[in-house]
Design a protein around this nucleic acid. Structure first.
Lengths: 205, 205
DNA sequence: ACCTGAACACCGTTCAAGT
DNA sequence: ACCTGAACACCGTTCAAGT
């Protein structure tokens, strides 16, 4: 049952299907292994090590994931989608400013999944044509929408952009991803959020 | 005049002196070369390349600078001293809050000397026993003194530490060291400074 | 004392050879 | 079609051998 022989009429198609299944299995196995290895060593983990531990040739890894960013993008896609959906939920259920700050807290937490990931996300602005940047664009759009709502509501200063808020949040996530500052993530986010509020001088504007 | 021959009575001492002079020349030359190479390639530049371009053996570089942080520390020492002195000057001539923010702007600008340096400075918190961390401690102390003065003056929220302010500033410097965000350094620092002010809810406290 | 560079153990990336 | 791993061009680090 598990190994059905190819019929005479569909041999080449069946072979192709088998091959695709093999490739697909490799793809999934590399991804699962990468998840473990990056959890251990961070986003700068050795790709050679990932291939070794997935027991595939190095070329196989590169065939499926031509760059480190491509691998990272595949690993993070689900989490990105989850955050985009969360933005919609928060926009529908929470006051604009609270929706924004709660979402940014989730973004910071999500960026902490792998050591070095916040820096990679913040660094997307430096080379915006990576696979990771493309996938992250939806994330930034979701954040920008929450920001605009909060700004329209007058709760958040109008002179910050979605990019500003995104990079500031990932920067705080980077600072607090390990070490003694790890305990201060929420507080540093609070400080940043206060900076995002309408400046004091404009309180009566 | 330039090449004085060793006298008979001081041969070994003279040899020692010559050797020390040679070593000193190597030290200085490596440092000068590193300044150029790091300016081109950032703090992650190849140390092999530095040795090659300084025309010294790789071992010579490692003898003088056993770690990358040691080299970085030697490169930055002057700038660190300059910033510490600047803190004293600002404390003596400017109102407390202005002294703090102006000094932090200079810190951010100084951290932008080499690409990747802000991240290295922010990362000091993650391994606090490097040569760079030791030299940076004076810098952080100077910032902490300015912070305490501004807090005592009631201008800055009391629930932030010197470490908080230091890492937030270097983080903003890291975000804005290149790319499209480079133009927004001053603005993002302003946002951060607003966050450091007494929280709005406490305005009448 | 100090300098040198080969040696070692790693990388990331490519690509001819296999199935 | 896809997989493999040797080959290439790099790293950082160490250390025996030179002067």
């Amino acid at each position: 049952m598990t190994a059905e022989p190819p019929t005479a009429t569909s041999t080449s198609a069946s072979v192709a299907r088998d091959r695709r299944a093999d490739a697909r299995r490799n793809y999934e196995h590399i991804l699962a292994t990468a998840r473990v290895v990056l959890a251990e060593q961070g986003v700068q983990a050795s790709l050679r090590d990932v291939a070794r531990r997935a027991e595939v040739g190095l070329g196989t890894l590169y065939r499926h994931f031509p760059t480190r960013e491509a691998l990272l993008e595949a690993l993070l896609r689900q989490g990105f989608h989850r955050l985009v959906k969360l933005a919609d939920t928060l926009a529908a259920t929470r006051p604009p400013a609270a929706a924004l700050t709660e979402w940014l807290r989730e973004l910071a937490a999500g960026a902490g999944t792998y050591q070095g990931l916040p820096a990679s996300l913040a660094g997307i602005m430096h080379d915006s044509d990576s696979a990771l940047a493309a996938s992250c664009a939806a994330l930034q759009s979701a954040g920008a929408r929450l920001l605009e709502r909060a700004q329209a509501d007058g709760e958040i200063r109008p002179d910050v952009t979605g990019t500003d808020v995104f990079v500031l949040t990932t920067a705080v996530a980077a600072l607090t991803e390990r070490g003694p500052l790890a305990q201060r993530r929420e507080h540093l986010l609070d400080v940043m959020f206060d900076g995002l509020r309408r400046a004091p001088g404009e309180l009566f504007g």
